[in-house]
């Protein structure tokens, strides 16, 4: 049974593509046949974060327009054979995405036996974002503990509840919250909204918390998703999310400040 998942946020720059790359890679590492689709037509980036930018020949729009077969446009990851990518086009064609075409591609991916189809939404709430969420069974709303991100997340949660294929058929999608760039130290000082604050405001169950870390930038520099080096806190956090998403129980981590020694506290 395949599952279509949208990674969305409303606001840009909060970590949708990073999250898509890590969750797709994590699910593929667990053996699930996974495809990540970039819905950001005109601003392709998922390929870069996943490190397959030089292997893009055909893209999602080529497939939608019938210029390429789906299986020729799918890029198989060189590290994990269960991971596939469908890149967005670099040419801006806002009419390229329509429900009929996107629905057909998703149906075909399901027939190809993909367990997870992860749709990386563009920022905003326009056509691309609407198409990315339309066929979803589950949604991951990525949010930073910051006012504009929380406000936009709330708008998107409203859209997810109303403007999806499932919503139209009275079978609402499951929406999860992923809080990224979280800094327990700033929360403790009262400088940042806490997990509980954001959960109370948005009223959506928590999928996980990803700590603020320089690892995210280092990983995208290299085109290697963080989960591939499981020694880092970001990788651990994303792997927890992947396990939870696949239905396993994992206690939430990275919410409390790590205990520091007395000298660090005095002279930190």
């Amino acid at each position: 049974m395949s599952k279509v998942v949208v990674v969305t946020s409303g606001k840009g720059g909060v970590g949708k593509t990073t999250t898509t790359a890590n969750i797709a890679t994590g699910l593929a590492l667990k053996g699930y046949k996974t495809v990540a689709i970039d819905f950001d037509v005109g601003l392709r980036n998922l390929d870069l974060v996943l490190g397959c930018e030089r292997r893009v020949v055909y893209d999602f729009v080529n497939v939608l327009k019938g210029e390429a077969k789906l299986h020729t446009a799918l890029i198989r990851d060189t590290r994990i054979e269960t991971l596939h990518v469908l890149a967005a086009s670099q040419t801006r064609d806002k009419d390229a995405l329509d429900a009929e075409g996107v629905g057909k591609v998703i149906k075909e991916l399901k027939e190809m036996g993909f367990d997870y189809i992860i749709c990386d939404s563009p920022a905003g709430i326009e056509k691309g974002a609407q198409m990315a969420m339309y066929f979803a069974d589950e949604a991951i709303v990525v949010c930073n503990p910051e006012v504009s991100s929380v406000r936009d997340a709330d708008r998107v949660i409203g859209l997810l509840a109303a403007k999806t294929n499932r919503a139209e058929n009275n079978n609402p999608i499951r929406t999860h919250l992923l809080l990224t760039r979280y800094s327990p130290m700033q929360v403790k000082k009262g400088e940042m909204l806490s997990v509980d604050d954001v959960l109370e405001l948005l009223g959506v169950p928590l999928l996980g918390v990803i700590p603020e870390s320089k690892i995210v930038l280092l990983s995208s520099n290299k085109g290697t998703p963080a989960v591939l080096d499981e020694t880092t806190d970001v990788a651990q956090a994303y792997l927890d999310v992947v396990h939870r998403f696949a239905g396993e129980e994992r206690e939430h981590r990275f919410i409390q400040e790590e205990k520091r020694g007395i000298f660090q506290r005095l002279f930190g």
């Binding site: 006012v147 708008r155 806490s194």
Partner: peptide, 18 residues
Amino acid sequence: KTASIAKDRLSVIVARER
């Protein structure tokens, strides 16, 4: 604390926009 200011402002705007 600025975090509590943020939370108060958000509760108002989010409720209104909903």
